[in-house]
Computed example of a mutant assay.
Amino acid sequence: MSKLSQVYEAQWYEASARERIAGLLDAKSFNEFFGPERRTMSPHLAQFDLTGAFDDGIVVGRGRLAGQEVFVAAQEGRFMGGAFGEVHGAKLLGLLRTARDGAGRGGPRAVLLLLDTGGVRLQEANAGELAISEIIHAIVQVRSAGIPVLALVGGRSGAFGGGGIITACCSRIIVSQHGRVSVSGPEVIETNKGVEEFDAKDRALVWRVCGARTRYLSGGTDRYVKGGIEDYREAAIALVKHAPPFALPTLTAEQQRLTERLRRFGDCRDAPEIWRKAGVPEPERIADIADDTFLTIQRIEGADHDAR
């Protein structure tokens, strides 16, 4: 088996940021903006006796997806949980602004964000928070310019904190079974509200609340895939073609959908209650069934949408 074939057959969850890019894009089409020869390390981590990474945990560049040029950013969840710091955030922001400035002048067909992050890097909290706010603004500008922004989530760190908010700002969201998306991470909720409110060690609870299957069934994500890099590639190719326009009717429809969802399920205390009320068969087994079986389940009414 060739090395390229091995990359394509690899699982998204187990792959590094660079392996995900290699399998997602057309073969040998990726051009990194800040390669190993241009070290983009955080200047702050040494103050905390922490070892940096030459790319500060994020890879940015351009390549081709099914023959079309795209910009791509991939977070490395194995470095500081993919957390946002000053340099990390600046690289992603620069990518988005470059895409925005190229709109209508031969710019990218889409921007792909391979998110794998626990949120803001505590050692650079102020810079990280500022970066996330600027990234959100830049995503809105990119989408307003007619360029879809896709979020691909399925790594070890999920998409938490500011990463969860960034995910929600994207045109389309792709997840696999290992994907988790939430504004507040389990440990954060437990620390602030107590273990009685949320036990971060209860894996079943965490996956019911933050997990990809819950997000997909309720419409919080747009495509659920089996988890191979090739599965993500196929989904990205399909969704780039059908990203919704970033306009008032789109936002109005999304607000109406969320209002209706709150009306129907606002009194539910846990995900199985929602699935039971929505008529999902055997709601208590959602986390245990195979992907093929899961994908045959009808999503709750209103989950398929052209919003965001």
Score class of each variant (00 low, 15 high):
42 S>R: 09
286 I>R: 01
239 L>R: 05
101 D>G: 12
62 R>F: 13
269 R>H: 14
280 V>P: 02
31 N>V: 11
194 G>V: 07
147 I>N: 09
9 E>P: 05
247 A>H: 11
223 R>F: 02
60 V>F: 03
229 I>R: 07
297 I>V: 14
37 E>Y: 03
286 I>S: 00
150 L>T: 06
144 S>V: 00
42 S>N: 10
182 S>Q: 11
115 L>A: 08
203 R>T: 11
236 A>S: 14
35 G>D: 14
111 V>I: 11
109 R>G: 07
218 S>D: 05
216 Y>P: 00
243 A>C: 08
11 Q>D: 14
131 A>R: 12
141 Q>T: 13
115 L>F: 09
175 V>C: 13
208 R>K: 12
49 D>E: 07
100 R>Y: 12
61 G>N: 03
290 A>I: 10
181 V>R: 03
58 I>G: 00
201 K>H: 08
95 L>M: 08
258 L>D: 01
157 S>A: 15
54 F>L: 13
293 T>S: 13
41 M>V: 15
149 V>D: 05
35 G>P: 10
136 I>K: 14
36 P>R: 12
141 Q>A: 15
300 I>V: 14
118 G>W: 12
207 W>H: 15
191 T>S: 13
62 R>A: 15
305 H>R: 13
16 S>N: 11
252 T>Q: 15
276 R>I: 10
81 G>H: 09
227 G>Q: 07
264 R>C: 05
304 D>S: 13
25 L>R: 03
94 G>M: 06
158 G>I: 00
63 G>M: 04
95 L>V: 08
54 F>K: 12
152 L>Q: 07
215 R>K: 14
268 C>D: 01
140 V>N: 11
145 A>V: 01
194 G>E: 02
243 A>I: 06
91 K>P: 04
53 A>F: 03
83 A>N: 15
93 L>S: 03
91 K>I: 03
55 D>Y: 12
97 R>K: 15
269 R>G: 10
239 L>Q: 10
187 E>R: 14
180 R>K: 15
218 S>Q: 04
284 E>M: 09
267 D>Y: 04
108 P>D: 02
29 S>H: 00
277 K>R: 15
298 Q>Y: 05
14 E>W: 06
148 P>Q: 07
146 G>M: 05
78 R>D: 12
83 A>W: 02
166 I>M: 15
26 D>E: 10
163 G>D: 00
93 L>V: 04
70 V>P: 07
92 L>A: 02
158 G>S: 01
31 N>H: 09
104 G>H: 09
38 R>P: 01
100 R>I: 04
59 V>L: 06
149 V>M: 04
22 A>S: 15
307 A>T: 12
4 L>M: 07
112 L>K: 02
228 G>E: 04
277 K>A: 15
195 V>K: 13
85 G>W: 03
112 L>H: 05
20 R>D: 01
274 I>N: 04
118 G>V: 14
201 K>D: 07
219 G>M: 08
265 F>G: 05
204 A>Q: 11
215 R>V: 12
71 F>T: 00
210 C>W: 03
189 I>A: 04
234 E>Q: 11
15 A>D: 08
298 Q>V: 06
214 T>I: 00
163 G>M: 00
69 E>N: 09
119 G>F: 03
